[in-house]
């Protein structure tokens, strides 16, 4: 995951890059002894704070705040996990074995298996490996992150035309960027858009995993995270 070195040539993407939030750190409870439950607690707490960041960040996507409040809610309720997955994916791109949930919180296959996250590990590794092969750039990460909200296929939107326009702006930005950055690969925009089904499938896997953890009642979850999980049930 290289840092952007050249000007993007596209103002929407430059704006998205500028608005990228500071990475969130894991805050394991120092009074709890290390265990699989502690791993899950740390993860759920981290994702709850990351979710808060995603909601704040969404307001800075060009066009998002112009949507009605009802439609902003609908897009976030549908697309929040895909956005979170992209955050984890982008952090994990330069790692071969570990999922990098935060700079100070990385989990390998064995740790995931022990915590009951084996399916999620496998699904995430599959997605990460796809993006590693494509050498996904930071510009593409931020644009895809905005796109997953715009393209979240919520069934309860008030103004589909406004959402279509919101999608079109992001699509045009990505196309414009790829034309300048990858002139030798005219299909790169399409290739990126074709990763969205796998991204959604991975996010659904993650939602299932956290719903199961919630039902098992072994891990306390924050209210915001629960509220957003319930919106997906």
């Amino acid at each position: 995951y290289s840092s952007p070195t050249k000007p993007t040539g596209n103002k929407v993407i430059s704006h998205l890059l500028m608005m990228e939030p500071t990475p969130v750190c894991a805050m394991p409870d120092p009074t709890t002894p290390d265990s699989d439950i502690k791993t899950l607690m740390t993860l759920c707490d981290l994702l709850n704070r990351e979710l808060l960041v995603v909601i704040g960040w969404a307001k800075h996507i060009p066009g998002f705040s112009a949507l009605s409040l009802v439609d902003q809610m609908a897009l976030l309720q549908s697309g929040w996990m895909e956005a979170l997955i992209l955050v984890v994916v982008s952090r994990s791109l330069s790692f071969t074995e570990e999922l990098v949930f935060a700079g100070n919180f990385r989990l390998d296959r064995a740790q995931c298996r022990a915590a009951g996250l084996q399916d999620l590990y496998t699904a995430l590794k599959h997605l990460i490996s796809k993006y590693q092969q494509m050498h996904l750039s930071p510009e593409e990460v931020v644009t895809l992150k905005a796109m997953v909200l715009a393209n979240s296929d919520s069934g309860s939107v008030e103004n589909p035309e406004a959402i279509q326009q919101f999608q079109d702006v992001l699509h045009e930005a990505l196309q414009d960027f790829e034309t300048g950055r990858h002139p030798g690969d005219p299909h790169r925009t399409g290739k990126l858009l074709m990763t969205l089904p796998l991204l959604r499938q991975t996010a659904n896997r993650a939602v299932d995993t956290f719903c199961r953890l919630q039902l098992e009642g072994r891990v306390p979850m924050h209210k915001l995270f629960l509220e957003m999980l319930e919106a997906k049930m």
Binding site: K11, V12, H15, L52, I55, G56, K59, H60, I61, P62, G63, F64, S65, A66, L69, Q72, M73, L76, Q77, K223, L224, E227, M228, E230, A231
Partner: peptide
């Protein structure tokens, strides 16, 4: 909306529209 009150509150707070 009542059901999703935290998200509703977060979005209502200091929305700054971006116009490029």
């Amino acid at each position: 909306k009542e059901k999703h009150k935290i998200l509703h509150r977060l979005l209502q707070n200091s929305s700054s529209p971006v116009d490029l």
